[in-house]
Design a protein around this nucleic acid. Structure first.
Length: 546
RNA sequence: GCGGGUGUAGCUCAGUGGUAGAGUGUCAGCUUCCCAAGCUGAAUGUCGCGGGUUCAAAUCCCGUCGCCCGCUCCA
């Protein structure tokens, strides 16, 4: 992530930083998000959405579904795009994950260093073997490990440190073959250097001769241990290898599995999209940062199938479209950036394509940096090719709309957004400090995203006010998520609705029986406006449409 | 997996060997009120869990578990 290049980055002053622990506390106190199974002490990496959280999440999800499937965007040629939805099983035939590459690629071997307590991904650790001419008969020269990408100067320093510690005379050139002594640039190149080996290719009984990347003495690395990031389960009552199945680590494969069904039955023509919202599961090594990295999370993914020659055009189209969508749901563009993936960072399916770009948000815990919110990847024809190979079912598309007609395997542009992360971004974005209020803060949701749109509040709980307020409530609740609240004094009720981000508090006061009007109190300004009872619904509807 | 922190009322926390506390919130009633007003009353705890020391443990010791932070990882 570090050396990647931001291709669009509006640098603004970081607005008063959202205190993450207070946001988490608010989410619990006001019923947005609870730790999962909390009465049993919780379970790391899982969260439950409370009454307000599910409203917020559904608002975001429904908006995505509407903008993708119900009214997809107008395409570059002025015609509406064609996107259909699916909702596929979380558990699929396990061959799915062999074909997708997840079984092979989703488990990373890790090694620990007993001296420094650091942990490394084994396939990222490179080992410099001593140059053979220096070896016999003595002294004993260890192998030197480093993390791939470490600058040459740092490796040199490390070797000097080891030499001092072990009391031997060695330098970098003792590890480098004759023909490569003159190195261009600052990094060793594995492709041309035979003395550098990945740790994974070195026999485990040789580990005693290796000095770990940050260690002083050899022999401190443990054996690599596999971390499988896919959750396993069994299908059927009998537990054996043949019943093993997996919880999906991404929703995308459910779409690829149904690509043929959709093409054959739904009268769609390339280019078209298939969209899906659903849960996905990854056994993360370290769930962190509230709901940002959890083990069970929700994705909103759309696979856009197009002709290979048009992949670049559509990649750019969807990148722009998706970035502006986040701004539309209230995520400030000054906290968004696009980040192009480096070549060595690309996923296995995207290596050959036009690339991958992340839409990143400045989360409170990443600030001033950014964290991924959505990824737009050119998956090429990787997935369809793989499923064609593993299932032996033809996935080719026959296009007779051009002359001469052609057969091809469509390429895929995938905008894959995190719904759970989106909720967090919307929450963080909404959290607004305001010392002048009793609540000290308020949630500045865009009205269309707010869990509760309007609160109907009789100023006092008698003198005919509740009757008028309830009548209004019964009308409003059929149109919007509305709350009726007659308890405690008006200030406390305003304060609570500031905390849950209700944009409009509608108060029935002692004047109402006389003038048939109420006051609408605006969350963001605390200003009040007198509105006739029969105009309240239209007033709120208009505000929500913006 | 390693290192650090932490665990007492819904929430924030006090309580270092001697009867389990405060503030706040919640609920009920009064007050009738436009920004957490006031008054009265009520409910809420195996002090994370298990063991040990002691006449006596929230408190000391041992173990264990959960959560948080850092590192590794993060399609």
């Amino acid at each position: 992530m570090g050396n990647a290049q931001a291709i669009s980055h509006t640098n603004v002053e970081i607005s008063s930083k959202v205190p993450m622990d207070e946001l988490v506390a608010l989410c619990k106190r006001r019923g947005f998000i609870f730790p999962a199974s909390e009465i049993y002490g919780g379970i790391n990496g899982f969260w439950d959405f409370g009454p307000l959280g599910v409203l917020l999440k559904n608002n975001l999800r429904d908006r995505w579904w509407r903008d993708m499937v119900i009214t997809p965007p107008i395409g570059p040629d002025g015609e509406p795009l064609q996107i259909v939805g699916v909702d596929t099983a979380i558990i699929q035939n396990p061959k799915t994950w062999e074909a997708s590459g997840h079984i092979a690629g989703f488990s990373d071997p890790m090694v620990d260093c007993k001296e420094t307590k650091l942990r490394y991904r084994a396939d990222h650790v490179m080992v410099l073997l001593p140059h053979t001419s220096k070896m016999p008969p003595a002294p004993k020269v260890p192998s030197v490990a480093f993390v791939e990408g470490t600058p040459l100067q740092d490796i040199e320093k490390h070797i000097k440190k080891i030499a001092k510690k072990l009391g031997i005379s060695i330098s970098l050139k003792d590890f480098i073959g004759h023909q490569y002594r003159e190195i261009e640039g600052s990094e060793l190149n594995i492709a041309v250097h035979h003395d550098k080996l990945p740790l994974t290719q070195i026999n485990k009984d040789k580990y005693t001769e290796i000095v770990a990347p940050d260690a002083d003495v050899p022999g401190t690395l443990t054996e690599p241990r596999a971390f499988n990031l896919m959750f396993e389960t069994q299908v059927g009552a009998v537990r054996d290898d043949s019943s093993k199945a997996y919880l999906r680590p991404e929703t995308a494969q459910g779409i690829f599995l149904n690509y043929k069904n959709v093409v054959d039955n739904m009268r769609v023509r390339v280019p078209f999209g298939i969209a899906q919202v659903g849960k996905a599961f990854r056994n993360e090594v370290t769930p962190r940062n509230f709901i940002y990295r959890s083990r069970e999370f929700e994705q909103m993914e759309m696979e856009w199938f197009c002709h290979p020659d048009e992949a670049k055009k559509w990649f750019e189209f969807w990148t722009e479209m998706r970035k502006s969508w986040w701004a539309d749901v209230g995520v400030s563009s000054s906290n968004l950036q696009l980040r192009q993936h480096d070549k060595d960072e690309l996923s296995h399916y995207a290596k050959a394509g036009v690339g991958t770009v992340d839409i990143e948000y400045r989360f409170p815990f990443t600030a001033p940096g950014f964290g991924e919110l959505e990824g737009i990847a050119h998956r090429c024809d990787f997935d369809l090719t793989q499923h064609e190979k593993h299932s032996t079912k033809k996935m080719e598309y026959f296009d007779d709309s051009v002359q001469p007609p052609r057969r091809f395997l469509p390429h895929v542009i995938e905008p894959a957004a995190g719904l759970t992360r989106g909720v967090l971004a919307v929450l963080a974005e909404a959290y607004t400090v305001d010392a002048s209020r009793p609540s000290q803060m308020y949630m500045k949701f865009k009205p269309s995203m707010a869990p509760v749109k309007a609160a109907i509040l009789p100023l006092i709980n008698k003198d005919g006010l509740p009757e008028i307020a309830q009548k209004l409530y019964y009308c409003m609740r059929t149109k919007f998520m509305t709350e009726y609240d007659a308890k405690s004094n008006i200030g406390k009720r305003y304060a609570r609705h500031d905390e849950i981000g209700t944009p409009f508090c509608i108060t029935v006061d002692t004047e109402t029986p006389k003038d048939q009007a109420v006051t609408i109190r605006f969350r963001d300004t605390m200003a009040q406006e007198r509105v006739a009872l029969d105009r309240v619904e239209a007033f709120v509807a208009k505000a929500l449409a913006e």
